[in-house]
Every structure is written in C-alpha cells, then in structure tokens.
C-alpha cells in the first residue's frame, strides 16, 4: 500500500528518484541471481546498458513499438551475455571478476568509439517514450513520473516474482549447489558451465529489462552512464544489504538511496556524498559483514521476545 501511495507524497524530483529506485531494485535483484553461483561480475551495469542501447536503437532506427522493443532489448542483453559466457566462464572467482570487467569495458568503449549507430560519447538522445493511451476517463501519460512509476513498479514486481520463483526452483537450488560445492555438484552430473551460463543469461535479461525501462524513461543513454563507477554502486548496494537472502540487496538499494537522496541532500553536502558512500561501504564490510539483512532476524527475535514478555508481564 505504501508503495502505491508513495509517489503522491513526494515532490517532483523525488518522484523521479522513486522511478530510478524501482529500476535499480530490479538491477540489483538480478545481480543477486548471478551471485548465487558464487561469481561476482563487474559487467552487470554494462549489460543493463546493452538492454538500454538495444531497446533505444530498435525504436529509433527500426521503428519498433516501445513495449515490444523493451522486451527485445532485454532478450538482446541475454543474447550478449550468452556470447560473453564462452570466454568468461573459463574463469572463476577473481579472474572472472577481472574478466567481466574487461569484457564490459570493451563493450562500453565500442559504444564510445562508434558514432554510428551508438552515437559516440554523447550517446543516443531523444529516445521515444513509452506511448500514452486513454482508457475511458483515465489518461496515461508516461512522461509523468507518477504514471511511469506505476508502470515500472508493475514490471519490476512481476520480474521480482519470476526471479524469486527461479531461485526457489530446482534450477535455483542447483545454483546454490554450484556455489558451495561445485566439485560435488559436477560429480553428481550437474553441468556447472551450463548452469553458470544460465544464471548469467537470466540475470542479464532482467538487467537488460532494467536498462530498457531506464532508456525510455530518461530518454537518453550514453557510455558514461554505464561506467564502472556505476557498477561500484551496484556492488555497494548488494554488499551493504547482504546477498544471503532475496531481500538483502533490495534492502541495501532502498536504504542507501533514501540516505543518499533524502538525508545527505537535505544536509546540502553534494560534493561530499561519495565520501559518505565510501565510509558506509568501509564500515559495513568491517562491522556488518553479513549486511543489513543480518539485522532482520535479530530485529524479529527482539520483537517477539518483547511481545512474549509483554504478554507474560500482566500474569506476574
């Protein structure tokens, strides 16, 4: 309910932030699916950008209607991930981290270098927006942040549900198995390469979808928007939130965005914001290595204890 009412209580600029927050929730949730297999990628934001660029180009150059191009953009991001998986999954752990960084950076430099069709350093501008429509007395104009917020919220909720179902399915359990016991999983006949690829491709499709949602909302994409600095923020959200649970990274992105946009903005210390982010990151790795999510069960037991004590106290 709060999510539905939220945009009407916010100022215009905060509504815009709310839209981007919803998109980032999908990005970080898809990133978590990737980390289930134990591999940490530094190319996830570039994959998001692939979806954004693809969807933007499909509408602008080929004239595909926006809703269809968004789906195509997401699938295209998955396709690129499938192609990348062949070199990348020959690596593991730290090497995969660096390899994914190199691959992502190459893609990003290609956008930067080739003006046709990627628009070079300035990127693609005037991307067609999501078409508005009339439904009886209601008019939907997706140029309005509130309307787009609801649209994004629906898309992201459905995507989160799918991601959640995948994680709970047999496939998801296999991802976990590969993370913790890859040799054992292999010895019982699990093709770890194919499952790693599967996790990467599924995660990339949803990251691409997040990118497409972004492109048709903001109306412009450029290579710098998908740089490794942006990737660092995804890492921060995931690490600060914690990646052991489905809600951990989402908790991370929501809480950090609120801190960043509401608390730090109201303090009026714009240039200092990365410093706060850095400090939060350092302290959370040092003091809260299991992430914010580890506080949730603690809070729950604390609450239940208080409740049982409250119930017990009158009888005493």
């Amino acid at each position: 309910m709060g999510l539905i009412a939220a945009p009407h209580l916010l100022s215009f600029s905060q509504q815009e932030i709310a839209v981007l927050l919803v998109i980032n929730v999908l990005l970080v949730a898809s990133y978590r699916l990737m980390t289930l297999t134990g591999e940490w990628s530094l190319g996830h934001v570039v994959i998001m950008g692939t979806g954004a660029y693809a969807s933007a180009l499909f509408t602008k150059s080929l004239g595909v209607p926006v809703p269809i191009s968004m789906v195509l953009g997401a699938l295209f991001a998955g396709l690129v991930a499938l192609g990348l998986s062949f070199p990348l999954f020959r690596m593991k752990g730290f090497y995969f981290l660096i390899g994914s960084f190199a691959a992502g950076e190459i893609i990003r430099l290609i956008w930067k270098r080739f003006t046709n069709p990627f628009g070079g350093p300035k990127g693609i501008k005037r991307i067609p927006e999501f078409p508005g429509f009339d439904l009886g007395p209601f008019t939907f104009d997706f140029y309005e942040p509130v309307t787009y917020y609801y649209f994004a919220l629906i898309v992201v909720t459905v995507s989160l549900f799918i991601l959640y179902r995948i994680e709970r399915s047999r496939i998801g359990l296999t991802f976990h198995a590969i993370h913790w016991q890859d040799k054992l999983a292999e010895s019982v006949g699990v093709d770890t390469f194919r499952y790693r690829t599967l996790a990467f491709v599924i995660a990339s499709v949803f990251a691409g979808l997040a990118g497409a949602l972004y492109a048709h909302y903001v109306g412009t994409v450029n290579p710098n928007r998908f740089s490794v600095e942006e990737m660092v923020f995804v890492l921060i959200w995931a690490i600060v939130g914690g990646t052991a649970t489905f809600y951990g990274p989402i908790l991370g992105v929501v809480i950090l965005t609120v801190i960043n946009e509401v608390v730090l903005r109201s303090l009026g210390v714009d240039t200092l914001r990365p410093l706060f982010y850095g400090a939060i990151l350092i302290f959370s790795v040092l003091l809260l290595p299991a992430g914010l999510e580890s506080l949730v069960p603690k809070a729950r037991t604390w609450l239940t204890r208080r409740r049982t004590e409250a119930e017990r106290s009158p009888t005493q």
Binding site: I280, I282, V285
Partner: peptide
C-alpha cells in the same frame, strides 16, 4: 570492497 570504499573517500577529498 573496502578498498573501493577508500577509493571513493580519497577521490572526494581531492575534489574538496
């Protein structure tokens, strides 16, 4: 990860 945090701190200090 901690060194990434330190990177942001140093960068911001230089900007300031």
């Amino acid at each position: 990860i901690a060194s990434i945090g330190f990177l942001l701190v140093l960068q911001t200090l230089a900007v300031v």
